[in-house]
Each structure stands twice: as structure tokens, then as C-alpha cells.
């Protein structure tokens, strides 16, 4: 199927916290470059666990791994706070000082594109 419109939020997880001081490791990559969503959303997208999904917002696009978490209501996706989620967050705070790290209109779709490693992701900002 085509892309699906969703609401994107981010937040902390235990493994993300355990690797705050080791962000260049596989463990951090495996935990943070992923997207949790309801099983029925995965079904609609035609994705299974660890399939690559592309999340696109008005501010950018990022590829992450899909993971099922039925704690998320349908239409709400969660990417742990970190470089992958922030690739699609706006820098404009509209004078409030706080970016919208949660409640971001996004489109999600299945993709064959690869998930970028953290250093590759940072390099995309070096125009």
C-alpha cells in the first residue's frame, strides 16, 4: 500500500538511556533507529518487525526499522529520542523556545532504502 498519515512522537527508553554515553554503538543504533507502532498499522503498511519504513514530514525524511507495540493507539508512531527522530523535527519553535518533538504530522511507508548509521546521518547536515 501507499504511505499512511500518522502522528509522530518521541521519548526515552531504557536501552536508549543505557547507551546515552555510547551512541556510536550497534546497541544504540538498534534501539533508537526504530519506530514503534500498533500491529494493525503494521498490517496496513504491509510491514513486519525489522522491515525498513520511511517516515517523512515537512522537515525531512528518515528510514528506521519497524517494531510492533500495541501500547500505541492506531495512527500514533513512536521513535525513541535521538538522531533518527530529530531528522524529521522542525527547528522552528515559533518563538516558544521548544521544538515540537511530539505531535508531528508525518507520512509512513514501507521502503527498501537503508537505515543510515549515525555518522552518515550527521554527514547529511554538512551541505
Amino acid at each position: 500500500m501507499e504511505g499512511m498519515n500518522v502522528n509522530l512522537i518521541s521519548g526515552r527508553t531504557t536501552v536508549q538511556g543505557q547507551n546515552l554515553d555510547s551512541k556510536l554503538t550497534e546497541k544504540y543504533f538498534g534501539e533508537v533507529a526504530r519506530c514503534d507502532m500498533n500491529g494493525s498499522d503494521m498490517e496496513k503498511l504491509g510491514v513486519a518487525k525489522d522491515d525498513n519504513v520511511k517516515v517523512t514530514t515537512a522537515y525531512g525524511a528518515v528510514v528506521v526499522k519497524a517494531k510492533q507495540d500495541d501500547g500505541n493507539p492506531e495512527g500514533l508512531i513512536f521513535i525513541p529520542m535521538g538522531p533518527w527522530c530529530n531528522a524529521v523535527v522542525s527547528g522552528d519553535t515559533h518563538g516558544a523556545g521548544m521544538p515540537s518533538f511530539k505531535g508531528i504530522d508525518a507520512e509512513i511507508e514501507k521502503t527498501e532504502e537503508e537505515v543510515l548509521q549515525v555518522k552518515e546521518l550527521m554527514r547529511t547536515y554538512m551541505g
Binding site: Y59, M81, G82, N86, G91, P99, M122, Y125
Partner: peptide
């Protein structure tokens, strides 16, 4: 890791 890409 924690700032929006647009700011980076």
C-alpha cells in the same frame, strides 16, 4: 543527537 536536524 538531541536537536532537530534543521538546527544542526
Amino acid at each position: 543527537a538531541h536537536f532537530p536536524g534543521e538546527s544542526l
